[in-house]
Amino acid sequence: MERTIDFSLAHKKLFGILHLPENDQPIHTFVLMIVGGAQTRIGSHRMYVQLARFLCRNGLPVMRFDYEGLGDSEGDFVGFEYAGPSIRAAVDTLYLSFSSLQRVVIWALCDGATAAILYAPSDSERICSLVVANPFLESETAKAQTILKNYYIRRLMQADFWRKVLTFQFSIKESASSLSTTLRTSAVNAEEEDWLHTGKSLSQWVLEGVNSFAKSMHVLISTDDIQGMLFYNLIRKDPACRKSIKAGRIKIWLIKGGDHTFTDPQIKDKACKKSLAAIVESAPGNGEQGDLCQMRIAAKTSLITG
C-alpha cells in the first residue's frame, strides 16, 4: 500500500510517500530514503520508486520524501549541506505516526548519502544503520587522485591502449596535457579545501561522521562511478575506518560495472538486492517483521557476502 504524507519544517510543508507492507504486523523498523543532487523523491529513472517498492514487497516499510526546496516540498533549494533539519523532521514524523517504531535505517545516494553521514551521529538513538550508495565528496584533489589511480593506471594495463599506441592512433600531446592537469590537481593538499568556511574539507567532515556514528554502515560502491570510488578510497585510507571495516561495523559492497545511479537494469536489480540484504542485516531481532523479511530474502535472493 502506498500513501501520501506531508509534514512541517519551520512553517514549510514537506511531501513524501509511504510504502507500507500489506500485513498487520506492528512496524518496528522503517527505511527512510534521502535523495541526492537535484533529484526528487522519484530518483533518476525512477530508481527510488523501484527500490522502495522492492523493499516493501519484501516486508519493509519505506518513506521517500523531498527535502526542503526539492521536488514538491516548499522553500528554496538549500542543498545537502542543509538537509539535516528536513531529515530530522522526517524521522520525527515517522515516530509520531507509528507508535511501535523502534528504529530507522537511512538509505541514500550521492549527496543525499553525504547528508545522511553528516546527520546520523546527531540522532544515533533512532538511526540504527546507514546504507549509503556512491556518497558525494566535493574534493577536486581527491577526485584527481582517484582518476589517476582508477583510470590512468588501469588504462596502462589494457590491450586496447597499447594497440592504439602501436598503430599511432594515440595522441601523446592531448593525453600528456590531460595527465599533467590531473597530476597538478592531485598534488594540492586536501586540507586546503575549506568546506563552508569551517576550516575543514568536506572529506574530513565525512570521515568524522563515519567514525563517530557507532552503528552499522553499509556502503554500496559502483566501480564505474568516480564519486563512489572517491569515497571508497577515502575510507580505505583512513586508519579508524579501516579498523571499523575489519571489525565488521562498516561493510563495503562493490557493484561491478555500476554507474552513479545504477542505470543498467541488471545492475539496478543487484543494487536493490544488496540494499535489502544490508538493511535486514542492520536491523536484527526485529520481531515478526524481521523474521518475515528474512524468510522472503531466503526465498528470493541469496545473501551477499561482499
Binding site: E2, R3, T4
Partner: peptide
C-alpha cells in the same frame, strides 16, 4: 505559503 493550499493524493 498561506495564499494557497497544496494537497497530494492518489
Amino acid at each position: 505559503m498561506a495564499e494557497q493550499l497544496e494537497e497530494m493524493f492518489f
